[in-house]
Amino acid sequence: MIHRRILNTALAAALVWPAIGMAQTTTRIIVPFGAGGPIDVTTRVLAEAVKGSLGTVIIENRAGAGGNIGVAAAAKAAPDGLTIGVATTASHGINPWLFKNLPYDPVKDTAPITQMLRVPNVLVINAEAAKRLNINSVADLIAYAKVNPGKLNYGSGGNGSAGHLAGELFKNQAGFFAVHIPFNGGNPAQTALLGGQVDFNIDNLATAAANIRAGRIKALAVTTAQRSAVMPDVPTLAETLPGFEIDTWWGLFAPAGTPPETVRKLNAAFTEALRTPEVKARFATLMAEPAPSTPEAFDAFMKSERTKYERVVKISGARVD
C-alpha cells in the first residue's frame, strides 16, 4: 500500500510538472524606446492582457538610435518565441531609407506577428498664429504659405523623424515652401509650437490632444484616410489633398526563423487581447485604435509603408550615416 501511494504521488507529480513548467514560461517583449511613452505604455497594457494565455510577460526597454538598438536585439534573439520585439513606423518603414547601415534587416531578420495599433497624426498650428494670420483651415494655411514663401516654419522631433517626413510630404503635395526646424525630440518641438517659436507641426494626436482641447493649438486636419473617432469634427488632410495618408503605427515581430506554429500561437494570443473591451478602452485614452492582423497582412502592410517612405525620405533629403 505504501509503495502504491509513493508511485501514485510520483505519477501525479510527473503529470503536474509540465503544466507548472508551462505556467512559469516567461515571454520577453523588447520595446525599442524608453519607459513611459505611448509605445511602452500600450505594450505593457497588451502584455498584461496576454498573461492568461502566454504566462509571465515582461517588458525590457532598449532605447537608442531611433529604435535601432532595441529592434536589433530582438531580431538577433533565439527564434524560440520567448523574445519578441516591437516594430514601428520608424524601424520598419523609415529607417531602412534613412540610415546607411542598419544593425538589422527589417525583412530578413524579423517574422511579423501582428500589428498592434494605429494612432492618427494631426496638423496643428499655434493658436495665436492662426488668429493673427487668419488661418482656420488647411486651405488657408496653403494659401498663406504660397503668397508668403518661407515665412512659415514648422517643427519636428528631428531630421528624419515622422513629423519631419510628414511635413515634407505635406509641403510637396501642397506645393509650398516652409522652413523645417528640427528639435531633439517630440516634446521640445511641441514646446516650441506652444511658445510660438514655430508656426505649425504634424504631431501625434495622442501627444497633441490635451493642448488642442485647451485651445493652445488649433487642429487643422488629421493625416489618416478617415476622420478620427475621437475628434470627428477635424477634417482629414486628404479632404484638401486627395491621397494624403500618414499615421503612426506599431506591432510585434519575432526573430526570423521562429517556427510558423509558434508565430501563429503568439498571433492568436495577441490578436485576441487586442479585441477585448478592456484593451480597446485603455488604448482609447491614448487616441490609439487596435489593429489586430494576421502575420501575412502585417508583413504586406509594412512592405507598403517602406515603399511609401522610400519616396518621402528622398523628398526630404534626410540622411543619418
Rank of each mutant, 00 (worst) to 15 (best):
Y144P: 04
D321T: 03
I315H: 09
I29Q: 05
A90R: 07
S53P: 01
G215C: 09
I2V: 12
S228R: 07
T110D: 00
E278D: 14
S156P: 10
L152A: 02
T191F: 12
A63P: 15
L194Y: 13
G195D: 14
I217F: 02
P259M: 06
P235R: 11
V124G: 03
Y154H: 15
G158N: 11
A318M: 03
R118Y: 12
I181C: 01
A192E: 10
Y154C: 03
N136G: 15
L102P: 05
D109H: 11
A208W: 04
L133G: 00
A23P: 01
E128D: 14
N61R: 12
H164Q: 12
A23Y: 05
P182S: 11
R319I: 01
V45A: 11
V45L: 11
F244T: 01
A77V: 08
G243Y: 02
G167F: 07
P235Y: 04
V263P: 07
G85P: 10
F170N: 03
K314D: 11
I202N: 09
T26W: 02
L54V: 07
M116S: 11
P255Y: 10
A221N: 07
Y104K: 08
R132Y: 00
S316M: 08
R216M: 09
I58T: 15
T191E: 12
E289H: 05
I212G: 03
V179H: 11
K171N: 04
I6L: 15
N134Q: 14
N95P: 02
A210I: 12
V230S: 15
M1L: 05
A143R: 13
P242N: 06
G70R: 06
N134Y: 01
E60Y: 02
K308V: 00
K108W: 00
V147N: 06
K218I: 07
E60T: 15
F301T: 02
V313H: 06
A74W: 11
A238E: 12
T294P: 09
N172H: 15
T88P: 10
L98K: 10
A72R: 08
E245F: 11
E60A: 09
E168H: 13
L220K: 06
K76E: 11
A166H: 02
A14C: 13
P149K: 04
V263N: 05
A65T: 06
F253W: 08
T285S: 13
F283E: 00
R4D: 13
P32R: 11
P96W: 04
L220Q: 10
D140P: 06
A162T: 15
A13I: 13
P106M: 10
L11D: 00
A284K: 12
F298E: 13
L152K: 06
P277L: 07
V16Y: 01
P149T: 09
R44A: 13
M116K: 01
F253G: 07
A145G: 02
A47I: 02
A72E: 10
P96D: 08
D247L: 06
Y144E: 02
